[in-house]
Amino acid sequence: MASGVKPRVKVPATATAGEVITIKTLISHTMESGQRKDSDGNTIPRSIINRFHVTFNDETVIDVVLEPAISTNPYFEFQATVPESGTFKFTWYDDDGSVYEDSKEVSVG
């Protein structure tokens, strides 16, 4: 699953200092479970996103271990505290060694 992987995130552009905001993320990925068989009866090997890590100004917000029971196009919604202006960094780790990243600026004013 090295092709067609597309991360998307929804983060408010602004916040007040110390505000708790809701973040939603999606990444297009088949999340091949390793349980399915192809038309010849051979098991299709597992190929999933196995970790999702979110930081704000390099401090962790949430760090998720994903198993094959996470649905196709993994979706996460969670809360983050925004102490000051800065950058959210989102990182998805693929079984095949690929790493997908996205980031979003939030300004506190």
Binding site: E59, I62, S71
Partner: peptide, 24 residues
């Protein structure tokens, strides 16, 4: 077939100890 689904670890900037996802 395998009971594992996910484990959420909350960091210092988690705004709440809660999370949503979608599972099989």
């Amino acid at each position: 077939p395998n009971p594992d689904v996910a484990t959420f670890k909350f960091g210092p900037l988690a705004g709440a100890r809660e999370a949503s996802t979608r599972i099989r």
